Amino acid sequence: MWTNALVPRARRLWEELARVPVSFPPPGGVKVVVSPRSGLCPVGWVGVVALGGSAIATAPSESAAAIVRDAWGQLPVSAVANGELVRRVPSVGQTLGPATLSYVSPAGFRPVSSGTVVMEQLPSAHPDLRILERAAGPEDADEAALGEIMSPAFVLRDHGQVVAAAGYCVWPGRTAQVGVLTAPEARGRGLARVTGSAAVAHALSAGLLPQWRARPAASRRVAAALGFEELGSQLSFEVAAATA
């Protein structure tokens, strides 16, 4: 198992994104800190990341942090990023996630070849990517965030149109956040695996840690096919008294 090697690197990313000094506690523990500028969640929300059997959480205020600590009480780590359980807490408002956090090592990576299909590389600002985003719809386009990638976009075309694309942003801790997008009419053909594989290979060659953050089951299956290990989850939610 490569989990032991991947977890510390993944944790360093989220500890840095917390934007206040915090470390993941020993297995089974949850550390809640106040961080109004946290990168774990939208501004004013609570962000939770569980990785490797323990979790950290950021809250926008001390009052919100107290509510979170009281609500969780003796809950196991597996429950603190469980969207259904968190939504049962009376003071919790909107939620985002949970998203599964998956990572892959060079040894664990299982590349997928494009075969006879020609793989192209495009800049993130290329208009053909915007056409793909409009075809996929705003929710899927926002999830993939191809407009924010720092790598080339690795794309496949069908009859001249880009029908699948993947790339990555470089996050703190030399982490490559991978984004993949496929046009609705081209799904189910394995194209996400092909473009995703190209993006992951590019990230690994640069010495980066590929991260696959996904909510849809289909996206998680693509990550698993490429050798990613599901090591944790991320959840964000509003607390009613956070601004009180």
Score class of each variant (00 low, 15 high):
Lys31Tyr: 05
Pro25Arg: 03
Arg19His: 14
Leu17Ile: 00
Val22Arg: 11
Val43Pro: 00
Glu16Trp: 07
Val33Gly: 09
Gly47Tyr: 04
Val34Asp: 04
Leu51Ala: 08
Gly28Ile: 07
Arg37Ile: 12
Gly52Phe: 01
Leu17Phe: 01
Ser23Asp: 13
Ser35Glu: 07
Gly44His: 11
Val49Arg: 00
Ala18Met: 02
Arg37Leu: 11
Phe24Val: 02
Val33Tyr: 06
Ala50Ser: 14
Pro42Glu: 08
Leu40Cys: 03
Ser23Ala: 14
Trp45Glu: 10
Ser38His: 06
Gly28Phe: 08
Arg37Asp: 15
Gly47Asn: 06
Leu17Pro: 00
Arg19Val: 04
Gly39Lys: 07
Leu40Ile: 10
Pro42His: 02
Glu16Lys: 09
Pro27Gln: 14
Val33Trp: 13
Pro21Asn: 13
Ser23His: 14
Pro21Lys: 10
Val30Arg: 15
Trp14Pro: 01
Trp45Lys: 04
Gly29Lys: 09
Leu40Gln: 06
Val46Ala: 15
Leu40Arg: 01
Ser38Gln: 07
Leu13Cys: 13
Arg19Met: 10
Ser38Tyr: 02
Val46Cys: 15
Phe24Leu: 04
Gly44Ala: 13
Leu13His: 15
Trp14Thr: 04
Lys31Glu: 15
Trp14His: 15
Ala18Lys: 01
Arg19Lys: 13
Trp45Cys: 12
Val43Thr: 15
Val34Leu: 04
Leu13Asp: 15
Arg37Gln: 12
Gly44Trp: 09
Leu17Val: 02
Ser54Ala: 14
Gly53Ile: 09
Gly52Glu: 07
Leu13Ala: 13
Arg19Glu: 13
Glu16Ser: 12
Ser35Gln: 06
Arg37Glu: 15
Val43Gln: 12
Ser38Ile: 02
Gly53Gln: 03
Ser35Phe: 07
Val46Ile: 12
Val20Phe: 11
Ser23Phe: 05
Ser54Trp: 00
Val32Cys: 13
Val46Pro: 05
Pro36His: 13
Pro27Asp: 10
Arg19Trp: 03
Ser38Asn: 08
